[in-house]
Design a protein around this nucleic acid. Sequence first.
DNA 1: CAGAATCCAACCCGATACTG
DNA 2: CAGTATCGGGTTGGATTCTG
Lengths: 121, 121
Amino acid sequence: MAEDPRRPFDVFSGACPSREVLEHVTSRWGSLTLAALSPEPARFGELRRCVDGVSDKMLSQTLKALEADGLVERHVQSTLPPNVDYRLTPNGETVAAAVKQLILALYAVMPEVMESKAQSA
Amino acid sequence: MAEDPRRPFDVFSGACPSREVLEHVTSRWGSLTLAALSPEPARFGELRRCVDGVSDKMLSQTLKALEADGLVERHVQSTLPPNVDYRLTPNGETVAAAVKQLILALYAVMPEVMESKAQSA
DNA sequence: CAGAATCCAACCCGATACTG
DNA sequence: CAGTATCGGGTTGGATTCTG
């Protein structure tokens, strides 16, 4: 990737703010959470069930990071029982769409990837 | 998520092989390494300099994981000094292209993301 | 230059228990 | 249901040293 002085962000630089956001998006649960929220909002429990393996703590933590980045919005209705859902902001949709494309690209290559792994083992 | 024989892979399932590959690709240094290798092959030292902050150990470890997945190829020329370069396989190019699109999506939203972060602080 | 090996601190993250 | 608080083990991963 060539340097472009007109493009103010560069994930390859450790000091660039975009690096931190990339790490949120590509964190262990970040990409799955974003993908799970697109295109439909989801409640906390739905997300936990959808994203297999995530704990309450990590899901909460992941959602907070994405919320602070302005990619996810938290909607609270103070009913009983409490009704909270999470939805993507427009920016979140932009990023989630790219994440889903990455997952689709992965699916496309998985058959051959599994052959590679079988041989290297 | 139910099994669908027509779509054999599902990253949301913790047991699916695609989950592991996704974690390699979205690991701390995985996405940056893939992006740095597209479209030009690169040598070890070039990568280490390009991917700001990565250590020898982690770069080596990341490259090995991607190589075992069949996304990266290691080319050795036993000269002196040793000349080794890493290049993407066709499958690696497919995935790297998606990673680069994700990074571009990130750049597009970064200005507003930074505003969000400033306000939440 | 391209890595392997070792050591060890930091923190990630899961389990558990608890709250409104 | 939707989380928070605390604890502790296990892994991550950086620094350093060494080799071909």
